[in-house]
Each structure stands twice: as C-alpha cells, then as structure tokens.
Design a protein around this nucleic acid. Sequence first.
DNA 1: TCTGGGGTCCTAGGACCC
DNA 2: TCTGGGGTCCTAGGACCC
Length: 406
Amino acid sequence: VFVSREAAILHADADCFHASVEQRDRPELRGRPVIVGPGVVTSPSYEARAYGVRSAMGGRLARRLCPQAVFVKPRWDAYVEAGKALFEVFERTAPVVEGLSMEEAFLDVSGLRRISGSPIEIAARLRREVRERVGLPITVGVGRTKLVAKVASGVAKPDGLLVVPPASELAFLHALRVESLWGVGPSTAEKLNAHGISTVGQAARLSQAELISILGRASGRSVHALAHNRHPERVRARRGRGSFGAQSALGRTTRSADAIDVVVIGLVDRVTRRMRAAGRAGRTVVLRMRFGDFSRATRSYTLSRATAASETVLAAMRALLRSVATVIERKGLTLVGVTVSNLDARYGGIQLELPLERRSRSALDRALDELRERFGTGAIIRAALLGRGSELSPALLADEAARRRD
DNA sequence: TCTGGGGTCCTAGGACCC
DNA sequence: TCTGGGGTCCTAGGACCC
C-alpha cells in the first residue's frame, strides 16, 4: 500500500478550458462572458458563470441567464493543441504524470525537493510556466492523496493554488457536500440525501455496511473509503484508452432510415480512421441511441476478430440498426453513436485505397504484392471492395455467425 | 436545466465450458 | 445420470466524469 507522508501530489486543472483558449486567441473576448457552443454549453468563462451559466447547460437557458454573453463555436483542433502544450509543461515538471482528460492531470512531485524545491514551490512554478508558455490560467491543488489534491483544486478555482496539509485533510473533506467526492453524481447524492446525508462528514459516520446497503457494493465501498480519505492510489501514467467512439445529435426532426444511414456512415468513417491512425483494432461494435422521449439504449455485437476496417464496422452497425428499426420508428431517434471497444489487439495493418477506375485484378495484385513486400509473407492481408452499393453486411454477419458455430 | 461529444467503470443475467 | 462448483465471455444498462 502506497502511503505518502507529505502532501506531494499535485492536481493541475485548466480553468474553463475551452473558453480560456478562446479568450487567449481573441483578446477582444477577455473580461467578457464567453460561452462555448450553442446547443449545449461546454465551458462557460468565469464571467459567464457569475450569471449562473454552467457547463452541460442548455444553450437557450444560458442565453436567458446571460444575454450579453458572446457565444463561440467550439474549435476542437485548437483545444487539442492547447492540451498538448499543457501536457508538455506537466511532463517537464514531474517524472510521473497521470492525465485525466485533455486539460487535467495528477503529478507526483515527491522526491523532487532537492532538484525542484517543495511541492508548493513546484506548484507555483507550474502555474507560472503554463501561463507563460501556453497562455492559460490553471489551478493546482496539492495534497497527500489524489482525492485531496483533486478536491483542493476544485475549491481553489479559478486561477488558484491550494495546499491541504496532512493534518487538516479530514476536516477539509468532511465540510464538503457529498457531490464533491469522486464518483458521486446526482443519482448517488440523491440516495444519500434521502437518508439525511448531505455532507462528507455525515457520510463518514456511517459504517461501510450501511453505505453499501444504500448505494450498492461498489459505490458504497468507494464513498466509505473516500469519506475517510482512504484513497491510496499511486499517480501513474494511464494505460491506453479502452474504446473509440463518435456520436451525433440529430435534433427532433424525424429522419428516414436512409438519412440515418448517411449519418452512421460518417460516424463509422470517423471512428475507424482514428483507430487506423492510432494503430488499434477492436472487436465489439456498440450502437448508442437516444430517442424522442430522451430514453437511451445501446446494442452491441462482438466480432470474432478485432478490426479497424470501415466496412466491417459499418456492416455490424447496419445489422444492429435493423434489429431496433421498430423502436426507432415508434419513438424517433434523436442521437446515434458508434463505439468500438474491446481493443484487445494491436492493428498493424495498413489500408490502401485504389481509385475505382483502377479497380482491376492486376491493380489489386500489384497492391497486394506491395503489401507482402512491406510486411512479409506472414502478414495477414485482407482486401475488400469499397464504394457505392457495397452491401457486405448480411454476408459478413452470416460469415461471423458461421465461424462462431465452428 | 429540456439536453453535445468524448470517454470510464460497475452490475447482472445468460450462454457456455470444464 | 440430470447436476456441483468454478470460471469466462457477451450483452445491456446505469452512473459518472470532463
């Protein structure tokens, strides 16, 4: 069990990340309420938060609360870029960095006192360097455990630094509302509230058995441990991601099956391109849906082999869509998503696309020869015809089913 | 609060295996 | 013969996070 004696875990978190990037790149937005994203608000600036605008809030309500706000379309490329720059500074600051998202990470700075100074000094310098090199404000929380560090940065926002010394940890945590704990969202908070528990301190007075009886095993254990500041997890670099996905909200207008198919093709293409670029393949294809009444559902299908091929994933998606056609017709589809998970294999493949006019047997043979030359005769080479009217789905799935039986 | 887009982890039942 | 104990994998859904 890992127990650090001093507060040497940093949680660094960019403030209102998206809005801050916009304000950095467009000086005329500085000091003004900025809201990124019509539709749903991803990241309101603090000027907008002052009017009650929150992330994940509907755009219409946000506009009502803060009519003078500037609405800005999200620029994802710019955020990815800024996130990379942010992590470059993180990596320079600490030997072990655990990224939680594009704009947030834990840094373990124990053992750096001789080289870089105390955790507080390191945290202050980190904030300065991010400001200088990336041009963004960040908040840093410092604690002995990840939990305390994370909660501390949340409390210190915006543009702040808060160190919670080991002696004050419990007092610090117990004063907070239960929602501040990691993994406690609206549903869990409501269950606790129903038992008269609204603060972490109140939760800490319950036994683990009592919490499990209220919340179930995993949540009960987790809340019990966190409320006592038992969160002995090391800071460690994350292993690779577990899935690739893309989704698209369709709005409330009813779409024909053909129109849905067009959206799905685009989503599959996006996901599989990213997978191939990352050199990953997956076996499970998940269709994610939201309906007119805002209920949700998923359907999944597991292939016998991992793939990153567009037409294989598309075939599976089409079959899944057919299986829920009547539900979609009855309730209306307002969101559709594709996720490929079960990423158990490296995908060492490469995809060569031949223009249609060169789609001849000899052109194909030349391409295959080229692949064999590059990857050796031991490589598994699969070819598929792409293009208009290619309807591989039923045959492909029948093939999968047959292989399973075998 | 009337709803985007990208993820993670947990639970539970059923099929199937030895 | 008609059934114990242990396990894996798949599917679907829920909760949560940024």
